[in-house]
């Protein structure tokens, strides 16, 4: 029962974060919010009984994907500054 409550609370946060991430004007904030969705998803995988997936999602989904988004944003901004 407690696991259902945790999933409901985390799920509401994730859905709100998803909508917010698509509507934020600031791209940096949107990327960080999308990373937070992945981090919360890893908790849900742990509750659903698959710790392997939880580890993968925590390291890849919220770690490396966010970093790659930030590098891409950085490159776009650098191109902008050069010209």
């Amino acid at each position: 029962m407690i696991s259902v409550t945790i999933i409901i609370v985390l799920g509401i946060i994730m859905i709100v974060a998803g909508i917010v991430a698509l509507h934020l004007k600031n791209l940096l904030a949107a990327i960080i919010t999308a990373g937070a969705i992945s981090l919360l998803a890893s908790v849900i995988y742990l509750i659903l009984g698959s710790p392997d997936v939880a580890m993968t999602e925590a390291s890849i989904g919220s770690g490396l994907t966010t970093i790659i988004f930030l590098y891409a944003l950085n490159r776009v901004r650098k191109e902008n500054k050069d010209d």
Partner: peptide, 10 residues
Amino acid sequence: PGGGFQGGVI
């Protein structure tokens, strides 16, 4: 839990 993919990412 864990394995090649997770270790590689770390």
